[in-house]
Each structure stands twice: as C-alpha cells, then as structure tokens.
Design a protein around this nucleic acid. Structure first.
Lengths: 211, 211
DNA sequence: CCACCAATAGGGCGTATGCGTTACACTGCG
DNA sequence: CGCAGTGTAACGCATACGCCCTATTGGTGG
C-alpha cells in the first residue's frame, strides 16, 4: 500500500515539526506539504497539490482556518482540525464547515495517527472530550439566541455603555422604544438590569470572535 | 564541549516533540527531560534532575508555568518561556518572575536555538516583537491600576450586575457609600455610567487570568 | 502637628432606568 | 383570512443612578 499523504496547515513551526515527525515516525505516512497561512495553502492547492488528509489549525495569521475547508474538500482532501479552541461554539462552527475530525492540541501523537486512519475510512474523528463539549453546549443553548435581531442590536449598544436615549438617537428610535426593547430583552434572559445584559453580550463576543 | 542539556515543560505532546526534534537536529543539544505539568516537573527536580536550560510553557494543566520558575532557577537552570500569550500583562508577569527569555509559540525553530545560546551567556532573550509589547504596555498603563483596593472590589461587584444596594449589603456598607465609591471610580476612569465600569473590569479579567 | 487621602456615611436633586400596561402597523405563516 | 411575532411608541410610577455637597475617622507623609 502506498503511503498516506498528509498536508499540514499551521502557523507555528514547532507544531508543524511535531506533527510531521510523529506522523513520519509512525510509518506509512508522508508529509507532502506544509503551509503557514491561508494564502500559501491556496497557492499549494492551485499548484495541483494532492493529499489524502489535511491537518488544519484554526488560528492562522490571515484568517480562520475554517475558510479553507471547502477548498480542501473540493480537492478530495479529508480535513482534521487541530486547534487549542475547545469552546462548544468553536467546535460546532468547525463541524458545520464540514470537517472530518476535530482534535485538541493537547492530544497525544497516537490520537492524531488514529484520527487519520479513521477519517480515511470516511468516518468522523471526534474524541469523547470534544463530543462532550458539543453535547453540553446543546443543553443550555446560548440564551442570546432567543433575542430578535433588533433586540441583539440594542443589547450590543447597551454593552458599549450607551444610555437608552443615546441608543435611541443612534437608531432613530424614541428612547421609550429602546426602553421597551431592553425590557423585553431582560425578560427573555431573566435579567433585572442592563449591566447583566452587557456582561452577557461581552462574554458572547469573546466566544464568537476569538480574542 | 559537552552537549547543552535541555528540559522541556509543556502539556502538549506535539510541542514537546517539535521542540525536541528541532533542538536535537541542530546538534550540540540534548533533551534530558520532558514534563507535562508542574507536579511532574517538581518530581523531576527532586530526583536530582540537572539541566542547563528549561523551555517552559505557561498554561499547564495544574497551574501557571511561572510558579515553577523559582525552583528551576534555584537548581541553576535558565528558564525560557515558550507560550502563546503575547499580552503585555503576561509578558511583564513573566519578567517579574525572573525568566531569562520569552518566546512566542509562533517562533521559528532557529529563534529557539538562538535564544538558548543567548541565555547561557547570562543575557536576556527577548525578541523585538516581545519587547515592543512591553514598551507599548508601559505607555498607556492600565487605567484600572489607579483604583484603590476598595474601589476595585466594588468595581468587580458592579461588573457582576449587582445594584448599589446589594453591593452595600454584601460588603456591610451603606448604599450611599457604595454610590460614593462608584462616583470616585467613574471620575478616576472618566466614565459616566456603571456599564462602562463593568466592561472595563471584564476586559481586565480576561487579560489577567487567561480565559 | 498639619495636610492630604482613602474609606465611611449621610442629604438633596434631577434624571435614567426598570416595570407594567396599552396601542397600532407590518410581516409571515398556517 | 386570522393570528402570532416583531417593531414602534407612549404613559405613569417607583426605584436606582449620577452628581452635587458636607462630615468624621484613620493612616501617611512632609
């Protein structure tokens, strides 16, 4: 059997080296490419790069690693995300992007090799610790998702420390209206003042965009 | 000349492997120990482990890597921090803990080898990108540091969404007193409402403890 | 010892906020 | 079509908040 061809996409030279050596020393694997960012990955694909599996980091200097998943899949390359992000939001975003596996950087080298074997059999490689996160995440689903678009807009202004009157001016609304929206927001979230709304929004932002 | 002995402390097997291979392939370096957490590092030191340099990660499963710096220095081991944290707060904390070098995990393997050579000559290994952070950090020094201990305590309760009356009850204060403290806080920070205070505290917490 | 500041506490005043309620227009869905 | 959901707006009321002010106590530094 021919060697399994692996593409490594990670901006940390140390990680690239670690993955490369652990794969090559396991036998039967061959690293056919190393890319440090999205741009070089696209170039590698354009130059007719072929591989069976890509090991993909999320936090790349020029964007989110998930942006390149589609192109990789189109080239017939299985994608395993290897990242430090273990938030349920992040994991779900990766699954929705269509990745075949999700590993944490704290993984052992064996787990990575095992995951590659699994995804090549068209199965999903999601370790228990990762699945647990998703499951728990689905339980107490993000409370902020209950807000309507308009309410979310106002909640974001609240989080920036604006008064109802100022928010009203910004959105061309009566401050009465802003107050009503905020009242509805607080009712939906079971909060009793605007500071709680602000903290929730800030926490949510911290998760949504990685900071 | 004998080989330079290096101890690697990092909870990520991939990073350990990457560092190990890059050091060993450079020639003249020998990895004499690998530890994944604080506890095993202490054990390693107790068993009379000797090394010239330690490559230390900050985020370990059982605590902050900086906690072990003192013990390493006491054993005559130079310490180079290798981490993803590039906040000025984090960098300054490391320098105060007495580390000899500070590298980001995005560093190239050459930089690590170079840093080891530098610290063995009793010099500090702080790349320009790191030093720039500290410098800029010193400029607009953390505004929250202007608050007194009591004010900070109240600011933290504000960030948790409590009203003045509730904060007063929690601290055995009159709500008038809480109000006065908060007024002083807002004056010091040039803020005009409690939400701004809350957001600042939350941002600060995000930096101080890594989340 | 005096000056200064942090911490505590209170009063007063005007405004903002939170809470309940009502009302109406618009949109989409069964 | 009717109905639910959403966005908009207004009113009144009680409370919280922000912004003045004064005052005492205890510690720190000149």
């Amino acid at each position: 059997m021919d060697a399994i061809q692996v593409l490594i996409i990670d901006d940390h030279p140390l990680i690239r080296l670690g993955v490369k050596r652990s794969l090559e020393s396991s036998g039967g694997m061959q690293v056919v490419g190393e890319c440090a960012d999205l741009a070089s990955t696209r170039k590698w694909l354009d130059l007719n790069g072929k591989a069976h599996v890509a090991i993909l980091d999320r936090s790349l200097p020029d964007g989110d690693g998930l942006e390149i998943v589609e192109a990789l899949k189109a080239a017939g390359i299985k994608v395993i995300v290897l990242t430090v992000e273990d938030d349920d939001v992040e994991i779900r975003a990766a699954i929705e992007a269509g990745v075949d596996g999700y590993l944490l950087k704290s993984s052992d080298t064996d787990q990575i090799i095992h995951a590659i074997g699994v995804v090549l059999q068209d199965a999903g490689a999601f370790p228990p610790q990762v699945l647990k996160k998703i499951y728990r995440g689905n339980q107490n689903d993000n409370p902020i998702s209950r807000l309507s678009a308009r309410e979310l807009e106002i909640a974001e202004y609240v989080a920036q420390g604006y008064s109802n009157k100022v928010i009203g001016a910004k959105l061309n609304l009566s401050d009465n209206t802003v107050r009503n929206h905020l009242a509805n927001i607080m009712q939906k979230l079971d909060f009793h003042n605007r500071v709680q709304v602000a903290t929730l929004v800030l926490q949510h932002l911290r998760k949504a965009r990685r900071i």
